[in-house]
Simulated assay, not measured.
Amino acid sequence: MTDLATASRDAGRTTDPRPRFIDLIMSEWMKLWSLRSTFWVLLLSALGVVLANVNAAWADYRNFPLYSAETQAALTPGWAAWDAFTSIAATLVILAMSSVGAISIVGEYSTGQNRTTFAAVPARGGVMAAKIVVMAVVTTVFGALVAGLSFWASQAILSGRNAGISIGHPNALQLAIGSALLAPLAALIGMGLGSLIRTTAATIVTATLLLLILPTAMNDTKYWGAVLAHTMPRVAWGRLTEIEPGSGPASLTPYSWTAGGAWTVYAVWALVSILIAVVSVQRRDQ
């Protein structure tokens, strides 16, 4: 009987091999796009982001003759950078991408699909790693497209007033990359929160409060308020949009900080969100 049981286990291992990571990637890819909301959220948010930036550039182009000589001189490069990716655009990206990240996690738990997934693939860490890779790739491509198109369109408009800047301008590439990576960062944070909260409405509200409302409540004209504000992704994005000192939203605080510090905030939030998602799915059954 022992030999028969051993033979049966060996046969099971032979006919049911452990899934390869690429198989998990493909599975998570199909899951993501099986949600009709994914396509529409990405499409509508992309249109909203690009239109917000184009509208800002067009407003400056139209009103340029009405500006004072001092304001016209300030339009390049400082205002041109603001028009390349506006605060409204950043807000839209954070809201949309954190929601997509949250739904990718919460959707499975609300429908019970997670039980089927984990029954087929007991290695939960591998499943979550595949989900994170797919989400990071999709949202990075999204971010690169909207940031690149926004930069090109806005500066093409402003060039009609000789006020546009090129991607080769000092720190212009930093602005574009920082704006593009805001999308996967928000998505990963949404995934981390979703893995903890596991209800769609509560996760989206929490993400909005944490990423958008809380930074505005911090008084960055005071030292400790500025220190806390500088730990927030939205404020870090503002620092990365500075083409030159004093030309971006981050310049409104008397406490300056480096672009390296802003990149560190991006990295820490992303890593912590990934860690929360992986640990949470391994420690909790429901």
Rank of each mutant, 00 (worst) to 15 (best):
V141T: 07
S37F: 01
V281S: 13
P249F: 01
V272W: 10
L228T: 09
I189R: 07
A56I: 08
A186Q: 04
V41T: 15
P17Q: 08
L275H: 10
M232G: 01
V93M: 13
R20S: 13
I197A: 05
T2A: 11
G126F: 08
N171I: 08
L196Y: 06
N63F: 13
N171R: 12
A46G: 10
G194Q: 03
I189F: 15
S104L: 08
A81K: 01
T116R: 07
P170G: 12
V100G: 03
L210P: 00
A46H: 02
G260V: 06
T253S: 15
A270M: 14
A57C: 03
A89D: 02
V50D: 03
L75M: 15
S99P: 03
W40A: 06
F64T: 10
Q286H: 12
T231W: 12
L44Y: 12
P233S: 07
S179R: 00
I165A: 08
L209N: 08
L252C: 05
A202M: 14
A270Y: 05
S104D: 09
A262P: 00
A144N: 02
I94Y: 00
A186C: 06
R283H: 05
L24A: 11
A202Y: 07
M218C: 05
A236E: 03
G178W: 00
L193P: 01
L95E: 03
M97Y: 01
A80L: 03
S256F: 11
W29T: 14
P170R: 11
W29D: 06
P17N: 07
M128F: 07
G238P: 00
D220N: 10
V106D: 01
G148I: 01
A259M: 07
A123V: 13
V141N: 03
G194L: 02
L210E: 06
A172R: 06
G192I: 05
F142G: 02
T86I: 05
G48N: 02
G261T: 11
L240M: 08
N162G: 15
I22R: 15
G107F: 00
L24C: 11
L185Q: 07
W29Q: 10
A136M: 10
L252Y: 12
A96R: 00
L271V: 15
L24Q: 15
N63I: 06
K222T: 15
G12P: 07
D220M: 03
F85H: 01
S68F: 03
G225Y: 00
V278R: 10
A136S: 13
L92D: 02
G225P: 02
A119P: 09
P19G: 06
V121L: 09
A172H: 03
I167V: 14
Y109E: 09
P170W: 09
I213H: 02
M97Q: 13
V279D: 09
W79P: 03
T111K: 00
P17C: 09
V272L: 15
Y109C: 04
V134Y: 04
M135W: 04
R161K: 14
V278M: 11
I274R: 10
A52P: 01
T111M: 02
A81F: 11
